[in-house]
Write a protein that binds this DNA or RNA. Structure first.
Lengths: 195, 195
DNA sequence: CTATCATTTCAGTAGCGAATGAAAGGCTAA
DNA sequence: TTAGCCTTTCATTCGCTACTGAAATGATAG
């Protein structure tokens, strides 16, 4: 524990400034990834933990994470659990050791698919459902009479456009999600060429 | 002002319950769209104002917005300005009237393109830049010696995967942004068929 | 069973972005 | 110029989310 603060072998065996430089590079990545978390709908700390596990490519225990990111035990515990729930990091048991280690998925495309699937389910599906419901309510409320009120027609048109848009967007997500793992990579490349 | 609280004609001319039902439908949409704002990186109030202007398809002035959404004058003013800055709503002057009206863009695909472009610029570009910088720093720091440290190799591989991913994602955004307006609609439909 | 070590929970706190509302600023018409 | 109307600004307040740290819980070894 004293000798191998982090990065295991590198710290011990390095003969020049490499380890500290490696650490600096990793820290830069972690900071930026944390800022970017919002884009993914993940808070800063969770994104940083994930970045740490991803970029070091080394399983780490709770204490490693706490120490390197300067966060409390409670925070580390909850964030690690949440990341496991998302499915973008995994627990790892080791023979004869009590503490648990965590490692990131290595496939970026798979991580992306997982996150996209979850966000679609949580945020897009309900909105699409609401729009459809609004559309139904509008028809019902209007039944024949006054269906030609300009205001009603305008709202109906807007709802229809939005429903079409959300429907297509949802299908795109579906396509990506359905092709998780690195396969997506190839599909996207082909797609881009065909444009 | 007393007679036409909102929705102009509909309120005055409606002969049955239509106007209030229309209003309810619109309010449902507005509420849900506000919740969804986060997905787009837009706060709740801004999203609600936009939803209001979009779904009613009727230009509204600051007071209309304040009253219908129950927000303060300051909030309305700042949010409307921000939406104008984004470019997803537009100011409208009227002859002989001092107050300004605001209306939403009507093309959903255009709105999407605008938002995507802005978010790419603000959030994805800097991250991609950081990753590239990290990659350079890593090569530099290691120059020949110790370049084969397992920890260094691992981090290098991870950074490369991420860079490739972000690069492709960026290109996809670029493609969408470059095809703003309804043209996108067709492109997406074609794409989905080809999958 | 007990001691030891690790994880989880949760009440309390801190920090930050969003909202308020009143005061200041601009325009337009007369 | 002045009066009236509308918009913008900004110091203050509010409310929410994330974080802490200590106590409770759980697990393993002896």
């Amino acid at each position: 524990m004293t000798a191998t603060t982090d990065d295991g072998a590198a710290v011990v065996r390095g003969v020049n400034g490499v380890p500290s430089n490696l650490r600096k590079v990793q820290d830069d990545f972690i900071r930026k990834w944390g800022e970017m978390g919002q884009v993914w709908g993940i808070n800063r700390t969770m994104a940083e933990i994930h970045a740490l596990l991803y970029v070091t490519a080394t399983p780490q225990c709770t204490d490693d994470v706490m120490e390197r990111l300067h966060i409390s035990r409670g925070n580390a515990s909850m964030s690690l659990r949440a990341l496991c729930d998302w499915g973008i990091i995994r627990r790892q048991h080791r023979r004869g050791e009590r503490r648990e280690y965590f490692e990131s998925l290595s496939d970026v495309w798979e991580m992306f698919s997982i996150i996209a699937a979850e966000r679609k389910r949580r945020e897009m599906d309900p909105v699409l459902e609401t729009i459809k419901q609004c559309r139904r309510d509008l028809d019902e409320a209007v039944l024949g009479k006054a269906a030609n009120e300009p205001a009603v027609i305008a709202t109906r048109e807007r709802l229809d456009s939005m429903e079409e848009f959300m429907g297509l967007t949802n299908k795109i997500f579906q396509t990506f999600i359905g092709n998780a793992k690195s396969g997506l990579n190839k599909i996207v490349k082909v797609l881009l060429k065909s444009l």
